[in-house]
Design a protein around this nucleic acid. Structure first.
Length: 112
DNA sequence: CTCTTGACTGAGG
DNA sequence: GCCTCAGCCAAGA
């Protein structure tokens, strides 16, 4: 597997797919892990194209733990439903105990 | 080619 | 902590 051959989007998907159950991460954390810390927006942009794929986009939020992308899911609270189903408490689009459920790919995948 | 948009982030007040 | 501004960069018109 040569990451260089993968598109930026594909790289994002690869990381997001590895987010453990009941955990979440931020766009910036993913971007930084991919060596594109300045391209956090591209991560979100990639998520926009992640529909129809095995990508748990609901586990990716912004640095504040806010569900900024919930409007891209079906309905108005699907993203929150999915997270709460995994044991992640969400209130007013804001993930509670964010620091506790936060999952940093640059740490968990440091050997990847 | 240029311009706009955006599921973002960090710095400054 | 909040709000605002600027930088970021890929994709589409």
């Amino acid at each position: 597997m040569k990451p260089e051959t993968l598109n930026f989007f594909d790289k994002v998907y690869g990381v997001v797919k590895q987010i453990p159950y009941g955990r979440v991460t931020s766009y910036g954390a993913i971007a930084k892990y991919l060596g594109a810390a300045r391209s956090a927006r591209m991560v979100g942009y990639a998520m926009n194209n992640a529909h129809g794929k095995d990508v748990p986009a609901h586990r990716v939020v912004n640095r504040k733990g806010l569900l900024t992308g919930k409007h891209h899911f079906e309905g108005t609270n699907l993203m929150q439903q999915l997270l709460e189903n995994e044991g992640v408490l969400v209130l007013e689009n804001q993930i509670q105990n964010f620091e506790t459920v936060f999952w940093d790919p640059s740490i968990a995948l440091q050997k990847f």
